[in-house]
């Protein structure tokens, strides 16, 4: 019934395949995290470009 080919298989088939649900949720959270990180770096790039164009008093001067 519960095939155990290798340890990874056993892990996912374990506890009535509950680990598959865990894996799915981890994928989704990782995906959201990647989205957030990319958004952040895009925003940073935007900010830097704006700074290069307008080298007035910027946020970095105040801090």
């Amino acid at each position: 019934m519960i095939l155990q080919v290798n340890p990874l298989e056993g892990f996912f088939f374990g506890s009535g395949k509950a680990m598959v649900a865990a894996g799915v949720i981890i994928i989704i959270i990782l995906g959201l995290a990647i989205w957030m990180f990319r958004m952040e770096s895009r925003m940073n790039r935007l900010n830097q470009r704006l700074d290069m164009e307008n080298p007035g008093p910027s946020d970095s001067d105040k801090s």
Binding site: G16, K17, V20, A21
Partner: peptide, 15 residues
């Protein structure tokens, strides 16, 4: 065959 992984329904399908 699905067992506990039915909980995925709440995550995979809404995508």
């Amino acid at each position: 065959r699905i067992f506990e992984s039915i909980r995925n329904l709440m995550w995979h399908v809404p995508m």
